[in-house]
Nucleic acid binder design. Structure first.
Lengths: 161, 161
DNA sequence: CAGGATCCCTAAGGATACTG
DNA sequence: CAGTATCCTTAGGGATCCTG
């Protein structure tokens, strides 16, 4: 039932939150990212009911983040697996960003870290620009990428982004 | 009412979602990031009721993402403003990641982009490691950062992260 | 194993009215 | 302006039972 919220407005953040804005949807994506593909595994590892798992997998598939792919194992019964699409993979920075934030600001609990397989170094999510500069919070402007005219940055007078 | 979910489990992502896992909480952080500080501005720009604004600002303040700061303008009445803390600012990669994702996978709507003030280049959120390498989805491992023993990466056998 | 159907509970959130 | 209080609706999600 958690269909993708069609009322998500203009702001891209709002749109994204309409898709993965619930705990279970986001954790489902986490699992997909970790390599989980089967229904029951999603259900158990996320810690959700089968009904919720079905609803979320359906919604995420409809939204194009997951792909439902039927397959058979040598004559066995048919099964479905859910795999990340390119759009789903694009969510990685968000997942890792949340991970980083949660790990850094954890309340005492033993916490987890992310490491790069190849070199063992800690993983971090960085904000950069195409020019290669590290970007700080104050240095960001919003630009309208329209068809007609390309508006310039508008930090003030921003109604209903 | 949306108090910070205390039942957020072990996984940092889950914890983070307990704090900014709702549309309005995330959009409130977006506004704070954009520079909004006053109650009514949050209310209008996020598009939420005053009650919801109060609840979210209170919860985010309690969670340490925002700081409530009373101030006076030359003899005028006392007011409160809500400003980002360091923990709130740490959420920037998540916000921008969501922004990027939403803008890239927008359904036709005219979309927005983010630019670096200094050089005008497009902003992107990158996943890197401390070694300076660009990290791809398959190259990530989870490590337990405990006090006792430092466990090694555990991609398999991951119950209840 | 992979769900669908039903029932019920709780949390998020809007609307409206009121206050320092 | 910056909220609080009350009421009500909806969506997320658990539990249980059932099916191909």
């Amino acid at each position: 039932m958690p269909d993708i919220n069609p009322a998500s407005g203009f702001c891209p953040i709002e749109k994204a939150m309409g898709v993965v804005g619930s705990r279970n949807a986001m954790l489902t994506m986490r699992e997909a990212f970790y390599g989980t593909t089967r229904f029951d595994d999603f259900t158990e590892r996320v810690g959700m009911s089968a009904a919720t798992a079905a609803a979320n997998l359906k919604a995420l598939t409809a939204a194009g983040l997951l792909e439902r792919r039927p397959y058979q194992l040598h004559g066995a019964r048919m099964r479905n697996e859910y795999v990340l699409t390119a759009a789903g993979t694009d969510l990685m920075p968000v997942l890792l960003g949340l991970f980083d934030w949660g790990a850094k600001h954890a309340d005492g609990a033993a916490h987890l870290g992310l490491r790069h397989d190849d070199c063992g170094e800690a993983i971090e999510v960085q904000v950069t620009c195409a020019g290669g500069h590290r970007v700080r919070p104050e240095e960001v402007s919003i630009t309208l990428i329209a068809n007609k005219h390309k508006a310039t940055g508008a930090r003030s007078d921003h109604n209903d982004r």
